[in-house]
């Protein structure tokens, strides 16, 4: 148990020591999106009645940051440890694969939430953001963050070099998060793309999360939760199996 706590502490300390890169940079990126999109679209788009475009944009940006950073934290930590070889420091001690999993998962969530909170704080300067249903907000942040943290663990273990990881990031993570209704309501899309979006689980993550803020969404939050929860179960299961087998960690 205390081995787990130390690993968790180490994983948090790792990104905390380089906060400028691990939290500062993604918050700045979100800020740039916010400035550009709200400047361009504020006057032209109103998605929900009584909600300004900038306010509408905020939950999506926060969620996107949570997801991308949860993924980045576990994946980059693992690939770095593998490439530098210091992964042996955590493979030699008597840590179970479950402890290993929980430590990387929770650390990824902490990083995701830290960045998400940073984006929220910055956003407060630009728009009034109400948070009507904090429990929905929390439920979607946790479940969705966990899905991406698991993907990060798997990608970090699978990847042999940074290039592999960049490929996952560019061809999977970015499209999934960008084409999920962060910047728009899918109701504003043509029918075809609306249909396609419904197959993107990230759409439900963001829509449910946004519902927590405004009490309005494209679909019912319970439906979103029903879509996201199986992904949490599936991906944690896969990640645990991978860790238990020792795939690419213990030959």
């Amino acid at each position: 148990m205390s081995g787990f706590r130390t690993l968790l502490y180490k994983e948090i300390l790792r990104f905390w020591k380089v906060l400028v890169q691990t939290v500062g940079a993604p918050v700045l990126t979100a800020l740039l999106y916010l400035l550009i999109f709200s400047h361009v679209l504020e006057e032209h788009v109103q998605v929900y009645p009584g909600v300004s475009y900038t306010a509408f944009l905020m939950p999506g940006l926060i969620m996107m940051s949570v997801l991308q950073n949860a993924f980045a934290n576990s994946s980059s930590s693992l690939i770095q440890s593998k490439i530098t070889g210091n992964i042996v420091f955590v493979l030699l001690p008597p840590l179970s694969y479950l402890e290993f999993f929980m430590a990387y998962l929770i650390a990824a969530l902490v990083r995701g939430f830290t960045v998400g909170l940073g984006v929220l704080l910055v956003g407060l300067f630009f728009a009034d953001i109400e948070m009507r249903y904090p429990l929905w907000i929390l439920a979607f942040a946790l479940s969705s963050g966990a899905v991406f943290a698991c993907m990060g663990i798997m990608a970090g273990i699978w990847a042999n070099q940074y290039d592999n990881l960049a490929a996952v990031q560019n061809f999977l993570i970015m499209p999934l998060t960008f084409l999920s209704g962060v910047f728009y309501s899918i109701h504003s899309l043509p029918d075809f793309w609306q249909g396609v979006s419904h197959f993107n689980p990230v759409f439900y993550m963001i829509d449910g999360f946004r519902y927590g803020f405004f009490g309005q969404g494209d679909v019912d939050p319970w439906l979103s939760l029903a879509v996201v929860t199986p992904f949490v179960v599936l991906l944690s299961g896969l990640t645990l199996m991978m860790l238990k087998s020792g795939y690419k960690l213990r030959h």
Partner: peptide, 8 residues
């Protein structure tokens, strides 16, 4: 210290 912690 971290290494000690991993061993409890």
């Amino acid at each position: 210290r971290l290494q000690s912690g991993y061993f409890g």
